[in-house]
Amino acid sequence: MGLNKHVEIEVLESMQSGMAQFYTPLSCHETMLVQVPPRAIDDLFVHHFQTDRLLVVRGSFVLVVLQNRQYRYLPLSDRHPAVITIPPGVPHGALNFSDEPCLVVNAVLRHGKAIERDYRPMKPRFAYDLEAAKAALDRELATAIGA
């Protein structure tokens, strides 16, 4: 059985208990806390033996995914708890349009030993469409506040 090569977005299920809201746990091999700096325009990364499962816990950013020679701009924010799953072999990067850092939990699934080039950035072969990415994030944030 091969690994899925498509990025997936999963809205987390939750349950209320008193004043607290409990969300679906993320099983993983390793948990990382990642900070996307303010005004970041990140290069692409490709992991060969890991699946990234990202959840924004503070702030917002746009995940850039390169598939079929096209960029997809996937806005993520702490206002809509969702996990985005990036399988091995999918180039991806981050854009933070905010003046504040964004904090992300990465629940990593390992499919083999990590290699050095998994963490070496690659310059995008063609420029990001920053206006399209910002518009996607603006739509996400407007939906979150009910505008």
Results as ranks from 00 to 15, higher is better:
Pro88Thr: 03
Lys113Leu: 12
Val105Gln: 12
Gly89Cys: 10
Ala94Val: 11
Ser98Lys: 01
Thr85Lys: 10
Met122Phe: 11
Pro87Ala: 11
Ile86Pro: 00
Leu130Gly: 00
Lys113Glu: 15
Val105Trp: 10
Glu116His: 08
Leu109Trp: 09
Leu76Thr: 00
Pro124Met: 12
Pro75Asn: 07
Arg117Phe: 10
Arg117Gln: 15
Pro88Trp: 04
Asp118Gln: 04
Pro87Asp: 07
Pro121His: 07
Leu109Arg: 14
Leu103Cys: 08
Val104Ile: 15
Arg79His: 13
His111Glu: 03
Pro124Gln: 08
Arg120Ser: 14
Leu103Asp: 13
Cys102Asn: 05
Ala94Tyr: 09
Tyr119Lys: 07
Tyr119Asp: 08
Glu116Ala: 12
Tyr128Asp: 14
Arg110Pro: 01
Pro101Met: 03
Thr85Gly: 08
Phe97Tyr: 00
Gly93Tyr: 04
Tyr119Phe: 15
Glu116Tyr: 09
Ala132Asn: 02
Glu131Val: 14
Met122Ser: 14
Ala127Leu: 09
Pro121Val: 03
His92Thr: 07
Gly89Asn: 12
Val83Trp: 02
Arg125Cys: 12
Leu74Cys: 06
Asp78Lys: 10
Asn96Gly: 01
Lys113Arg: 12
Ala82Gln: 15
Ile86Arg: 04
Asp78Leu: 06
Gly93Lys: 01
Met122Glu: 14
Glu116Asp: 11
Ala114Asn: 02
Ala82Asp: 08
Ala132Phe: 01
Ala82Thr: 09
Tyr73Val: 03
Glu131Gln: 11
Cys102Ala: 12
Val108Cys: 06
Lys113Pro: 09
Ala127His: 11
Arg125Met: 14
Ala107Gly: 00
Ala107Tyr: 03
Ala127Asp: 15
Pro101Gly: 02
Leu130Pro: 00
Met122Leu: 14
Leu130Arg: 03
Arg125Pro: 12
Asp78Glu: 15
Glu100Val: 09
Asn96Met: 10
Pro121Gln: 05
Pro124Phe: 11
Glu116Gly: 09
Ala132Ser: 07
His80Leu: 09
Asp118Cys: 02
Leu109Ser: 11
Ala127Gln: 12
Val105Met: 15
Arg110Glu: 00
Arg117Ser: 15
Leu109Glu: 15
Arg79Gln: 15
Arg117Gly: 07
Ser98Cys: 04
Phe126Arg: 07
His80Asp: 13
Leu130Lys: 02
Ala132Trp: 01
Ala114Lys: 08
Arg117Pro: 06
Lys123Thr: 13
Glu131Ser: 13
Glu116Trp: 04
Leu76Ser: 03
Gly112Gln: 09
Tyr119Trp: 15
Gly93Thr: 05
Asp129Ser: 03
Pro87Glu: 05
His92Phe: 07
Val108Tyr: 06
Leu95Val: 00
Pro87Arg: 09
Arg117Trp: 14
Ile84Asp: 04
Ile84Tyr: 11
Asp129Gly: 05
Glu100Pro: 00
Glu116Phe: 10
Arg79Pro: 01
His80Asn: 13
Arg110Thr: 04
